[in-house]
Amino acid sequence: MVYQFPHKTGQYIVEIIEEKGDQLLVKVLAVLKHPRQGDLHNPNEVENVFFHERKALSQFEKRYTTAQFLKAYQSEVPNYIDSLKQSLYELEEKMKQRNNAYSLQALKCIEQLKVDYEQQYKTNF
């Protein structure tokens, strides 16, 4: 069975691979929503904050969580790289539409993420 798993500001499709008490070890299969860029504690801010470049969890990356954060995923699981591209393009389009200081900084991060992902996954973004 596969699940939706929120991690920071991203959303992933995962499967449980191990249980230790109330802790579940999950493995990332696909990306539903790419993490937001910037400071999580000061969303949409660029002044006087450290603006973080945030990557999506990698294919097959593992994380511990609890059952309360997992929600059954009923649809077909997409290919990881295709889902990563789609989620990044959706975030990029959203930032292009905003056209403010935050979105301009986020777009710079997204451009660098494309370069990083191309090297990591050996595909064009």
Rank of each mutant, 00 (worst) to 15 (best):
S83L: 14
D22Q: 07
Y121H: 02
E90C: 08
S58R: 06
E15T: 11
D39I: 01
E118M: 08
I16H: 06
Y64M: 15
S75R: 12
Q23H: 11
Y89W: 15
A30I: 07
H52K: 13
K20I: 13
F5C: 06
D116C: 04
P43L: 04
E47G: 02
D116M: 04
S103Q: 02
V115F: 06
L29N: 09
L70I: 11
K122E: 02
Q59E: 05
H41I: 05
F50N: 08
L84S: 12
K8D: 11
Y64T: 15
P6F: 10
S75Y: 08
E15G: 14
V26H: 03
D116P: 00
K85Y: 15
R36Y: 14
Q68E: 14
V49Y: 08
S103C: 01
A30T: 09
R36C: 10
P43D: 09
T65N: 07
R36P: 00
N79M: 09
K8S: 14
I110C: 00
H7N: 13
T65Y: 09
S103T: 02
E92M: 09
L25Y: 05
K27R: 14
Y89G: 00
Q37S: 03
K8F: 07
L88G: 08
L25M: 13
T66Y: 12
N99Q: 10
Y117V: 01
V14G: 03
L107C: 01
E92W: 06
E90N: 12
R63F: 09
Q97V: 08
Q120Y: 05
Y73D: 10
L25Q: 10
F5G: 02
K20W: 04
T9D: 12
E15N: 12
L107Q: 00
S103H: 00
G10R: 05
E47H: 08
A67L: 11
H34Y: 15
K8Y: 13
I16L: 10
V115P: 01
F50E: 12
L104T: 03
Q37V: 04
V115R: 02
I81F: 13
K55F: 02
G38D: 06
T66R: 14
P78R: 10
V28R: 02
E76H: 11
G10C: 12
L104V: 05
N79K: 11
K108C: 02
C109S: 09
F60V: 00
E92C: 04
F60C: 01
L104Q: 10
R98L: 11
E92Y: 09
M95H: 00
N79Y: 11
P35C: 07
V115G: 03
E45H: 15
E19W: 09
E76F: 11
E47C: 06
I16C: 07
T9S: 15
F51C: 03
H34P: 04
K27P: 03
K27T: 04
D39L: 07
R36K: 13
M95N: 03
Q105D: 08
H34I: 03
E47V: 11
L29K: 10
F69V: 03
K96N: 07
N100I: 04
Y121V: 00
I17K: 09
Q11T: 05
F51Y: 12
M95Q: 06
L24K: 07
I81Y: 15
